[in-house]
Simulated scan of single mutants.
Amino acid sequence: HPDVARRFAGYLTHATHHDPDKYPWIFLTFWSMTALLIGTFIVSSIHTLMWLPRSLQMRREHPPASFDPGEQQYVRFTFLNRCLHATMVVSFLTLATTGMTMKFSYTKGATLLSRLLGGTEVTGFFHRFAAVVLLGIFCVHIWDLLRRKKNEFGTWKAMLFGPDTMLPTRKDLTEVGQTLKWYLGKGERPRYGRWTYWEKFDYFAVFWGIAIIGGSGLMLWFAEFFTRFLPGWLINVATIIHSDEALLAAGFIFTIHFFNTHFRPEKFPMDTVVFTGRMPLEDFKRERPAEYEELVASGELKRHLAYPLSLNTMRTIRTLAWIALGIGLSLVVGIIYAMLFAYR
């Protein structure tokens, strides 16, 4: 490492998170991240298991309707939304595949996958390239928010505190309680609006991931630069944060998020709305009655209706989506195996 700063030598080559006396910050970081990972999955899994019986009930009461090319649908997402999401799917799958390959590099499966990708250096290149793409998606999304604020809302107050805000509100807290009562059979299903509380959680989890995983990843990528003004042992800390937060992100998306979006019974086997931008009008009325009634009352509903995409286009979208889902589920199996039988 030519021209590195003196602090670079502070990187602890043989440090372990098992020794709180010798490596307190590494020990604390590891167990804090472990607690975050376990806690997130416990809470999310309980929520999912409570949801399952009600979801089965909704499937029985409202089975999926057959495809009707002549029936208008509600346009929920714009073309830009769909493009950003599709690109994010590809970039995240690339990050997860290459990242888990490097994290569990001591396993035979990861070694084989690394060879198929072209070796360790090529795997690392794909990982960093996908990270740059994801950062670009984030920047485009921020630009789109600024554009919408100017053209649609006019003021930050209207955008951030209006009825369709993505920010958590008191209404979300109320709906959490109402949802839990519904799960337990002690109340009706909440009258959700444009965004549910779990969708907002998923949305801001991306911001969290960009900051935490992205920030720690930059420290690992440009370790020589950052150790010009930071102690070398922070690279050890960044390694743990980057690795464990990425594990949490991949595990959560490929299990909890997949269930919330695609695998819950009333949507099984797949909800294509984020890929097509459209959803059947009857589903819209039933799932988001507050938003539907607001659009009807304002006379704006017709502006948001469009005919469904062609059957061939839908088949293509479903095929690509199934490939993405298959890769994600395969990674989950690989992660579980590595954690249970090969973790070091």
Rank of each mutant, 00 (worst) to 15 (best):
G119N: 10
K181D: 11
M102K: 12
G193D: 02
G214H: 11
L184E: 08
L173T: 06
T94G: 07
L112R: 09
L80C: 11
T111A: 12
F204Q: 01
C139K: 02
M100K: 05
T97S: 13
K108V: 00
A205R: 00
L80P: 06
A130N: 04
F161Y: 13
H141A: 14
A110F: 01
C139S: 13
F138G: 03
C139Q: 08
G215S: 08
A130W: 00
L135N: 05
L95I: 07
W156R: 09
L160T: 04
V90H: 01
L84Y: 12
G118K: 06
F161G: 01
E188F: 13
V140M: 10
M166I: 15
S114T: 14
T101C: 07
D164Q: 11
D144M: 12
Y203C: 03
Y203R: 03
A158I: 03
T174L: 11
L95Y: 03
N81T: 08
L117Y: 04
G124F: 09
Y197E: 00
A96W: 07
D144K: 13
G124K: 06
Y197R: 10
L116H: 06
A110G: 06
C83A: 13
R82Q: 08
H141G: 05
H127K: 01
T101Q: 01
L167A: 13
L184G: 07
W182D: 05
N151Y: 12
H127G: 04
A205F: 08
M159V: 06
I212D: 01
D172G: 00
G209A: 03
K149C: 11
V133P: 03
N81G: 14
A158N: 15
L113D: 07
L173C: 14
V75M: 07
R194S: 01
L134Q: 10
V89A: 14
A86K: 11
T94W: 02
G119I: 07
T196Q: 05
N151T: 15
K181T: 04
M102N: 10
K149S: 02
I213Q: 01
K103T: 12
A131L: 05
F92D: 04
L84I: 07
T179P: 13
F207N: 13
G124H: 03
I212R: 03
V132W: 06
